[in-house]
Design a binder for these strands. Structure first.
Lengths: 195, 195
DNA sequence: GTCTATAAGAAGATAGAC
DNA sequence: GTCTATCTTCTTATAGAC
């Protein structure tokens, strides 16, 4: 531990490189991002990059881990907050997500080269699984307090909510607009009202 | 019109090339698919391919159009079938989709090179939009017959359903299993029961 | 029309000076 | 540790024989 702050103002080399990779992984995606592009974005030289990281995939691993951790933390903040289970799920659905830039956790799941190799794929896999588990737990909790009818299975409902959120990104990109995402989130909220 | 059947047994060159491109576009995706791979898959030579198509993007355009048309037709088959609005939506959710191979219509929406240029992106865009409209119409119909509570807005609900279906693909790929998709579809069905 | 050979370019990584 | 030059390989496309 060097005690150097990881913030927006003062970042050491490796930190900046990982940040840049995170951003580029969201938008052009893994295959669409060249080491050169990462260096340009991070304003780092080739030397620096290859000195600290073994290569593109090594950098991507660091970036994916960081993105996954953040997605997890944000979800946790919403799902462990105040209010009823329904409120917390609604809060989770409302989080700002910069939809058109793609899902920081889900986008990599679409990259052929990432899915192919286990190292990069594993953290993505884990993040999604834990998120669904956490959502299911909140649904179960809500059912225990009589918030939901007995009908919806927690695991199913959790999967639906996760699908809408994590993947509403796709139609949004297809439409070139956040509208599909917002509408989908609103639709789930409305369904939960009546459930 | 030459009258040659477009089936599995007898396909002319261009047809085979487009088919192969469709399949490869679903799985490795646009960036991950080389002209060479297409030729190998279609058992065609370079000459044949470049003779009929201007290049990779030209072939991709043909493939995307065909996939989009098929997705639209399948959705229409389910949504215009017999039964209540709820039944038809449930049927739509149950269609076999070869989940892990990716969504034929949505996968392209994730490819940086496709999103960048308008030609390839446009058919994807259109397909998603029309599908949501169609779903919204069925929901509206269901509400008119008193199948759903007055609460859910048709456009919102349609967006939710579309997000679950078209994109349940993402968590499924992340998990390496169809389970997340199946659960999500089941979750929406259950919610519709109670709505 | 279909094949083989090959060119032009970029992606990813390395070498070696400083 | 960081920079520049270089190397290899892959991707996409073209040329020209047949």
């Amino acid at each position: 531990m060097t005690g150097v702050a990881i913030g927006t103002t003062r970042r050491r080399g490796p930190e900046r490189l990982v940040r840049s990779t995170e951003e580029l992984l969201r938008d052009p995606g893994y295959v669409g991002t060249s080491p050169e592009a990462i260096q340009a974005h991070a304003r780092a030289g080739q030397g620096g990059m290859y000195h600290r990281f073994a290569g593109k995939s090594d950098l991507a691993l660091a970036a994916i881990r960081r993105s996954a951790e953040q997605v997890r933390a944000e979800a946790e903040a919403a799902l462990s907050g105040k209010g009823t289970a329904r409120d917390r799920i609604a809060a989770y659905l409302s989080r700002e997500r910069d939809i058109l830039r793609g899902c920081p956790a889900g986008r990599p799941a679409q990259d052929p080269e990432i899915v192919a190799g286990a190292e990069l794929w594993q953290p993505v896999h884990e993040t999604f699984g834990r998120l669904r588990e956490r959502l299911a737990a909140v649904v179960t909790e809500g059912k225990a307090h009589g918030e939901f009818a007995s009908k919806p299975d927690p695991a199913h409902l959790a999967a639906s909510i996760a699908a809408v959120v994590q993947n509403g990104y796709v139609p949004a990109r297809a439409a070139g607009s956040v509208e599909p995402f917002d509408r989908a989130a609103e639709g789930v909220r409305e369904l939960l009202q009546t459930a």
